[in-house]
Simulated assay, not measured.
Amino acid sequence: MALNWFTELPSGVVTNFLVLEALLNQHFVAVRKFRKTSIHLMDCKQGEHESLGEYIKRFNAESLEIPNLEDYVALAALMLGLKPSKFKFDILNAEVTSFSEAMARAKKRISVVDIVNPGGG
């Protein structure tokens, strides 16, 4: 696709590498993969029928795609995305202040649910 585009350029348009780079960026901006930011993480919400384990797994996958994610932002996004539940209430009530602490509590909660209700739910 890029080669076809390049061969169709008028002769003499590309005078140096910087011009070529600018033309490429301008023409192929629609296919460029954009980096995710913490704003994307704020949209990561737990589905109505999604278990805590499924949500935590999905949330972690999303958070790993965000470079230089601040701990307090990750915690805020996690809390914002959790549906109302005993777990969310417990996190708020315990005044959890770090993402890693919230993840540790989620892991314990998920383990307890798996023991009490094998097979999910």
Rank of each mutant, 00 (worst) to 15 (best):
Q26C: 00
A106F: 00
A74K: 13
E48C: 01
I110Y: 03
A106V: 06
K86E: 12
K36Y: 11
P84R: 00
L41N: 03
R32Y: 03
K88V: 05
K45E: 13
A76W: 06
I115L: 03
E101A: 14
F59Y: 13
T7M: 13
L41M: 07
Y55G: 07
V73G: 09
L75R: 04
Y55C: 03
W5H: 09
L3N: 13
I91N: 00
S100R: 05
V116H: 06
G119M: 05
G81T: 02
N60S: 15
T7Y: 11
P118T: 05
L3A: 14
G12Q: 02
L52G: 09
E70N: 07
N4I: 07
V29C: 09
S98R: 09
L92T: 10
V31S: 14
V112K: 06
G12S: 04
F6S: 06
L41C: 10
E101P: 04
L82W: 00
E65D: 15
V14A: 01
L3R: 15
I66Y: 10
S11N: 10
Y55Q: 07
E50T: 06
L64K: 13
I39L: 10
F28K: 08
G119K: 05
A76H: 11
S98F: 00
N60G: 12
N25S: 12
N117W: 04
Y72L: 12
E48Q: 12
A77E: 01
V29N: 11
A106W: 02
K36P: 00
G53A: 11
T15Y: 08
P84I: 01
R109V: 08
I110G: 09
L18W: 04
A74H: 10
H27D: 04
E101Q: 14
V14R: 01
I91T: 11
N93T: 09
F6H: 07
S51Y: 06
M1G: 12
W5F: 15
L41V: 08
K86H: 03
F87C: 04
F59R: 07
I66E: 01
A77P: 11
F6I: 15
N117A: 04
F59K: 05
I115N: 01
G81E: 12
G12R: 02
A77Y: 02
R32S: 08
N93G: 08
H49G: 08
L64H: 06
K107Y: 01
D90N: 14
E48H: 13
G120E: 03
E65T: 15
I91H: 00
K45A: 09
F6E: 02
A2C: 05
K83Q: 15
A102L: 11
L92I: 08
A77I: 04
V116K: 11
G81Y: 09
L82I: 08
F87E: 04
N68R: 14
D90F: 06
A30N: 15
G119R: 03
P10W: 05
S85Q: 08
P67K: 11
K36V: 11
F6R: 10
R109G: 06
K57Y: 10
Q46T: 08
A2F: 13
L24F: 15
L41R: 02
A102P: 11
K57Q: 09
L75S: 13
S51E: 15
E8L: 12
E48I: 11
A106L: 05
R109T: 14
S63G: 12
V73T: 14
K33F: 03
A2E: 12
V14K: 06
G47F: 02
A76C: 00
I66P: 12
Q26R: 14
A22L: 10
V112P: 02
D43C: 06
Y72N: 13
